[in-house]
Design a protein around this nucleic acid. Structure first.
Lengths: 222, 222
DNA sequence: GCTGGGCTCACCCGATTGGGGGATTTTAAT
DNA sequence: ATTAAAATCCCCCAATCGGGTGAGCCCAGC
């Protein structure tokens, strides 16, 4: 959609920052990136701490970040860099296939996710993709991300029929209101609110407002 | 990773089912798919109802589903087909860029998501991708999916320092436990729990357990 | 026309919660 | 060694909450 940002859209090579703890990998990736005519690796850091210091100064157009770093993880580092450079896309790199880290990284602000065994051509494509606002991912990773959308829904039960008032009351509950506040908010007697709430509790099989709120909010998230 | 499933991995063409209400589009896509030597369009339905009837019989290896269908949406249809054919990947098609539908479709069980203006070659690649367990998406869509992981964080405030015990107590609150239950769970006096809770309330600037829970859960979601 | 469900409200009662004081001990940091 | 913060526990008190029971009112469907 939008054109590649930053370097005046001219012929200046796109600036890549790399964070990777293993020296051999770091150096070979750095060389690989600079070998592309339209890219240059302007920063190659070995640790998260170093990255926080040097990456912002190197004014990169895109950042490649290893997930596993000593001490501070690449995820934490991603979150912190995003705070300083919110516009610069960050692509995570990982050798392995842990499920958890994918989401943590994405939640930390990562824009893409690549396995380290990516081919040079695919790496270049991914860099261009993310610079154009895309979200490069390998098939496997995309699959896992998508899977997180279908996650466990053995929810074949009845959808629980709350009446209009009961629903309203429940929603106000989830705003943190007390019964009195809900009553005022709806121009009802406190007793009526309590009455609706009793019905809600029964229908949701809970015994307290907190349980009801947790129950309701967790269903919203799905 | 895994090889393309089903047709004995021999030379049998891969079976595609198509659900698309607009006749012109449906027929041209159907022809396009069958024009690939390794694919054949075995079913082209105009409505969700028709799809629910014919698609399972046509034993497809993959399903292409338009999002916008008359009466029952492609999303609802996807959910129902997934109930019958859980293993068959479904790729959603859409002409427009609505944000909401993406997630609804993915939650309904869609495995990929393509814009209709996809090139023939890219369509073929996407079909192969999803059959190999990938999750084909255009850059734009992938971007939106990824964005859903970083949503809203104008949270530049201080991170609120809860002590270990306070945090534990708060977490148990969000499980819907009462003070007594928390006390038992942690082998503490109820008074201690109340004490921690008072501190939590003060730090979070809330006045009730429900507010604390809402506050905490909303931060988790980000 | 009757019935049932939803909505409204009321009263009682015991348990829980929130807010206000403390006090003591353990742990960590200076 | 001194100090500060954290963690533990206690008591009091008023307010809120959860559960039970019951009672009118209105509207839609049979």
């Amino acid at each position: 959609m939008t054109a590649v940002p930053s370097p005046a859209d001219g012929q200046l090579p796109l600036r890549v920052a790399l964070v990777e703890d293993q020296r051999a990998t770091r150096e070979s990736w750095s060389r690989l990136i600079s070998s592309f005519s339209d890219f240059t690796c302007v920063c190659a850091c070995a640790t998260a701490e170093e990255a926080l210091l040097l990456v912002p100064q190197s004014k990169p157009n895109v950042i490649l970040m290893d997930i596993f770093l000593p001490r501070m993880s690449g995820i934490e580092c991603t979150a912190r860099l995003k705070a300083v450079l919110p516009k610069v896309p960050i692509v995570m790199l990982t050798a392995s296939d842990e499920d958890e880290t994918v989401f943590q990284a994405l939640q930390a602000g990562a824009n893409g996710y690549l396995l380290k065994r990516t081919e040079p051509a695919a790496l270049r494509a991914a860099l261009l993709d993310v610079l154009n606002g895309g979200a490069p991912m390998t098939s496997e990773v995309a699959r896992r991300v998508i899977d997180s959308f279908h996650t466990k829904k053995p929810n074949r039960e009845k959808p629980i029929n709350l009446t209009a008032r009961e629903e309203e009351t429940l929603v106000l509950l989830t705003k943190g209101y007390s019964n009195k506040e809900i009553a005022e908010h709806q121009n009802l007697s406190i007793e009526t609110v309590r009455s609706h709430l009793k019905n809600v509790y029964e229908k949701l099989h809970v015994r307290s407002r907190t349980e009801a709120v947790v129950n309701y909010l967790s269903k919203q998230k799905e």
